[in-house]
């Protein structure tokens, strides 16, 4: 039986070459992007914040410096129970 696409040296007809190129670009690009992201993800999972963790432990900080100094998220222990943060709207809108 004649099976055109199973032959070893099958060449696509000329109008199909562009389509084939498009396919190759689509597949290669998404695979490259996917692999790059996955590799970066794997690389990062290993301890990129060790330095920060060590200083957190040494200095006994209660919260990381993700927020500016003076905000209640940076220093949760300074929030007085008698102060209702609902009235300082800018202070508590995180993240």
């Amino acid at each position: 039986m004649y099976r055109p696409f199973a032959e070893k040296n099958y060449r696509y007809p000329a109008p199909c070459r562009g389509a084939r190129r498009l396919l190759i670009i689509a597949i290669t690009a998404s695979m490259l992007l996917g692999i790059a992201t996955a590799a970066d993800l794997l690389r990062r999972i290993a301890h990129q914040d060790d330095g920060a963790s060590a200083w957190m432990r040494t200095m006994n900080f209660s919260a990381p410096a993700l927020w500016t100094a003076g905000s209640p998220m940076r220093h949760p222990e300074t929030v007085h129970p008698g102060v209702d943060l609902r009235f300082s709207a800018g202070l508590v809108t995180a993240p």
Binding site: D49, G51, A52, W55, M56, M59, F61, P64, A65, A69
Partner: peptide
């Protein structure tokens, strides 16, 4: 150093 910034940025 910059890589400890998460703990020491504003210190």
């Amino acid at each position: 150093p910059a890589d400890t910034g998460l703990a020491t940025h504003d210190l």
